[in-house]
């Protein structure tokens, strides 16, 4: 699920950057530092929407570096158990398949695909196949998240397509 959240980030700036371009540099550094990262607490930081305040720099004694506490608003994505997500299959094997939901990797075990779907190792590429559906690499699938494991800097999820209206998205 996506959220708009106000977050802060501390930037340490080397004195060689102090100058007219300082603010530009800070903005750029903020984007570089936070976009695309993942924190267990907030989820994946997809994009910084606005930078609310870059704060006043404070020179650190000893190093001469300036510390800026920036506050910004960002779109974050955090998966939850029970959430239905759309993803793209990246890897199929006999134990199940992996799909990417944006930055999040979801594993769907072969136990959690429809009973009539069988793994076909001889197909190229390998796929899960039923009468009307094929799940192979690059297929778009809709799945429900069964569980998430959230670590400090990473999130993994388990999904299922063994429910109504789940599975390959045909359009």
């Amino acid at each position: 699920m996506f959220f708009l959240r106000q977050l802060t980030h501390t930037i340490l700036l080397h004195p060689s950057y102090f100058g007219a371009q300082l603010e530009d540099y800070l903005r750029q550094k903020l984007y570089e530092d936070v976009e695309g990262t993942c924190s267990g607490k907030y989820g994946y930081i997809i994009s910084v929407v606005t930078i609310n305040d870059i704060g006043e720099g404070k020179i650190m004694p000893g190093t001469g570096q300036a510390r800026f506490k920036c506050s910004y608003t960002a779109i974050v994505m955090k998966p939850f158990k029970g959430e239905v997500v759309d993803g793209k299959v990246v890897n199929v094997n006999k134990m199940g398949f992996f799909a990417m939901v944006g930055p999040l990797q979801v594993f769907v075990s072969s136990h959690l695909v429809h009973a009539d779907m069988k793994f076909d190792p001889n197909a190229s590429p390998q796929c899960y196949r039923s009468n009307d559906e094929v799940i192979q690499r690059d297929t778009c699938v809709r799945m429900e998240i069964v569980g998430c494991r959230i670590e400090a800097n990473d999130i993994f999820a388990i999904g299922t397509i063994k429910k109504d209206f789940m599975g390959q998205i045909q359009d």
Partner: peptide
């Protein structure tokens, strides 16, 4: 990843 692949 330390998680059951069936029940999560």
């Amino acid at each position: 990843h330390g998680m059951c692949g069936v029940c999560g």
